[in-house]
Nucleic acid binder design. Structure first.
Length: 269
DNA sequence: ATAAGTGTTGCGCA
DNA sequence: CTGCGCAACACTTA
């Protein structure tokens, strides 16, 4: 599930470790995660030198001397910097580097490893339509994005084309901090509530970036993140008292995803 | 042991 | 534009 904090940290680690490495060999065990035929993918990136690693939302952008490697990890993906002697049990894709290290990529449910030529990044539809990173957004930009929208606030925040990086894990605490019910209609939000939402997005994501991502995800070195269950305010704490008012936290269905809310602090009116 | 639930995304449909 | 249900099919938990 990696969401923005995990991907931010992963991009940072990859930039530190992988820049200047040369891809000597590529092994694809799950061709269906590619956007081009396996032979094309291997041909395109073999011999490439890694120049930079950045991210937008939940997507990693690996810039190489021979084009872009774009990765979306889906739910629960892992990227591990290992050697052929320390490979994890399961992986879908391996990039062997000229120095003997390798990057093992594993997807739990659904992930993508896509290729785009250097000057054709815009042609990659899945990343071209991503909105601004949730943590790069300004309060004015958020106000502008919300203007004229009619839907529920939760589906807006989860829509990567509007704001990139928020998923169905950190969103529970973000909405709680903003005191907004997930199904609250955007056109009923007051200016104060939008300001509160802006602050809540930062407060909900930044601590996890600082702590290296969520505890259930492994970083590039195989270690768990330092953002722990107790760092969550109400997410995944069904039945426990709300830290503000003591009302038991409820788990409710909101469309096709679940939400954790304090029914008192986040009333729909 | 079987089954439901899950952090994602794009798509077609109403 | 919006929400909804589905499909991709791994792994944990009840």
């Amino acid at each position: 599930m990696p969401e923005l904090p995990e991907i931010t940290v992963r991009a940072r680690e990859m930039k530190k470790e992988l820049v200047n490495k040369t891809i000597a060999n590529i092994e694809v065990l799950q061709p269906k995660c590619l956007n081009v035929p396996e032979e094309v993918f291997i041909e395109a990136l073999t011999g490439a030198q890694i120049r930079d690693v950045t991210h937008r939302g939940k997507w990693l952008f690996v810039e190489t001397s021979q084009g872009w490697l774009l990765m979306g990890l889906g739910m629960g993906g892992e990227l591990l910097l290992v050697t052929r002697d320390t490979l994890p049990e399961k992986y879908r894709l391996i990039f062997d580097f000229a120095d003997g290290t390798c990057l093992a990529v594993n997807f739990w449910w659904f992930g993508y490893a896509h290729y785009a030529p250097t000057d054709e990044l815009d042609s990659h539809k899945m990343t071209a339509k991503l909105g601004p990173n949730a943590l790069d957004l300004t309060a004015d930009e958020l106000r502008a994005l919300l203007k004229g929208r009619r839907g529920g606030i939760k589906s807006f925040l989860l829509n990567q084309a509007r704001i990139a990086g928020i998923g169905n894990f950190y969103i529970h605490d973000i909405l709680f901090r903003a005191k907004l019910h997930p199904l609250r209609k955007i056109n009923t939000l007051t200016d104060d509530e939008i300001d509160a939402l802006f602050r809540a997005i930062r407060q909900g994501l930044q601590p996890s970036v600082d702590k290296g991502g969520a505890w259930y995800e492994l970083n590039l070195y195989g270690d768990r993140g330092g953002f722990l269950r107790e760092d969550l305010l109400i997410g995944y704490t069904e039945g426990e008292p709300c830290p503000t008012c003591g009302t038991p936290i409820e788990k409710i269905k909101t469309g096709s995803t679940s939400s954790f809310i304090c029914p008192h602090c986040q009333s729909l009116e």
